[in-house]
Amino acid sequence: MIEFRSVSKRFPDGTLAVQDFSLVLPSHKTTVLVGSSGSGKTTLLRMINRMVDPTSGSVAIDGEDIATLPPVKLRRGIGYVMQNSGLLPHRTVLDNVATVPLLRGTPKRQARADALVLLDTVGLDRALADRYPGQLSGGQQQRVGVARGLAVDPNILLMDEPFGAVDPIVRAELQQELVRLQKDLDKTVVFVTHDIEEAFLLGDQIVILREGGRIAQVGSPADLLARPADDFVASFVGADRGRRVLHVERHGAEDVVVDSDGRLAGVLNGNPAEGDR
């Protein structure tokens, strides 16, 4: 369990990135921080592994204030995946995955063997093990990034817009992979994105952020869609327009579902409970 206790962060240049932010991120769930740029979502994420230290307030992992932990040791126990993969360009794929175990003193042979298994886990061909990051596609690099994040079998996995720089088709593929992985691995995942669709797809708990790290609403995807706290959230999740607002039309003998623009969204199948209409 990760807990933010009235955390604020003012950067040296004076910008207030996060203001009095409190939140509990439950264990073994995926919490998605979603907001536009300037919402402080990445700053919040980086507070969890002390890449950023709060100006006031504290962050606790399983009840322990992380300010008391040495940052380097803390980071080695937390998986981190970033947008541009952040791989070391002069090391092979395998050595990149094995980076953190080697830092922690795992014998080289062992670390490499484990890394090979991780390539399987993230759906990468073992033949790529000896390639350099620059020789991989963007999607493959991100998979290596995920494998590196998982290399020390961390309880917590931090993901900072990990699929932001790949094309839409690859992104969809990677998102599905992550859903599958999380089913198997059951980590506490903290995921940052500006894409609400991605948040709905991956998140158990979604945090919608306004500017300056203020929480607009926290809840499950269904909560946010069905009961947006205000217009900001409604507009952000798109509850007020397009294909989020569906209604049923009678078409001959069948019920078809149509969105607010009148475009056909699907066919109503089975007997849904009355209340859901």
């Binding site: 541009n84 993969s85 952040g86 791989l87 360009p89 002069h90 090391r91 092979t92 350099y132 990051p133 620059g134 020789q135 991989l136 596609s137 963007g138 999607g139 493959q140 690099q141 720089a165 790949v166 094309d167 690859v170």
Partner: peptide
């Protein structure tokens, strides 16, 4: 360093990082 020489083959699209 190997891997950054640009001689190790083409870089795939979308890999802006390196």
């Amino acid at each position: 360093p190997r891997g950054v020489s640009g001689r190790v083959g083409g870089r795939a699209p979308g890999t802006t990082d390196s």
